[in-house]
């Protein structure tokens, strides 16, 4: 899947330190599939007073606005699968856990890092009904645009940006580097033979 511009309503979540246990509970980690996890998405939040995922007006939004350190905690990629499963393609936050942002990227989700000061106005727009609540996330220009013309630049790793724009099979890309990998293995076998085989 490729991405250039995602426009539409956004879930105004806003909370900081949303951990991956809150995105998808451990019961859902028993699946051996990647699909259907949307049913469990954000269950711990929804059971504890967070309503945005159950409000009609936000249903089907492709954008989520969150606070700092989104996706902290467990490395479970199920969190990304759950988010994809409910149709979210962009998460906007001041910071993301390293593992979550990597998992998100591998599943075609853009994690757009904005300055902390951008969150209150973005939340206000996201809460606005009608045309005035439509946010436009432009991955080419690396900017988020509000209907009134306000713009907030966002940060994304250049490699990930390129991959999201073009769509890319990472394993296929790495396999083109087979000779370099083999050369590294040969060097380690010589210099640090104890690393060259464990079991």
């Amino acid at each position: 899947m490729t991405m250039s511009v995602v426009a539409g309503r956004a879930y105004p979540l806003g909370l900081s330190n949303v951990d991956t246990d809150q995105i998808i509970g451990s019961d859902w980690l028993k699946t051996i599939s990647k699909v259907g996890l949307g049913q469990g998405a954000f269950a711990a939040l929804r059971e504890n007073g967070v309503t945005v995922f159950d409000e009609e007006r936000y249903m089907g939004s492709e954008i989520l606005v969150a606070g700092a350190n989104f996706g902290c905690g467990s490395s479970r990629e199920h969190a990304a699968w759950a988010i994809v499963d409910i149709g979210i393609r962009v998460v906007i936050a001041p910071s993301f856990s390293d593992i979550f942002s990597s998992n998100a990227f591998k599943n075609g989700i853009l994690t757009a890092v904005v300055d902390e000061v951008a969150i209150p106005p973005l939340m206000a727009f996201a809460r606005t009904d009608g045309e005035d609540g439509i946010l436009k996330v432009d991955l080419i220009a690396q900017v988020i645009e509000a209907p009134d013309g306000q713009r907030w630049p966002f940060r994304i790793d250049p490699f990930r940006r390129e991959c999201l724009i073009d769509g890319l099979d990472e394993i296929a890309l790495t396999r083109t580097e087979g000779p370099a990998i083999s050369a590294h293995e040969a060097r380690v076998a010589l210099v640090e033979p104890w690393l060259a085989g464990a079991v």
């Binding site: 490395s75 390293d98 990472e170 396999r175």
Partner: peptide, 23 residues
């Protein structure tokens, strides 16, 4: 040593490498 997601697990199983930026 660091934690990775399942897509990265697959990448390591297949290639014994990971593509990443230095922290």
């Amino acid at each position: 040593a660091f934690g990775i997601g399942t897509t990265e697990v697959e990448h390591v199983l297949a290639t014994q490498t990971l593509r990443m930026a230095r922290s």
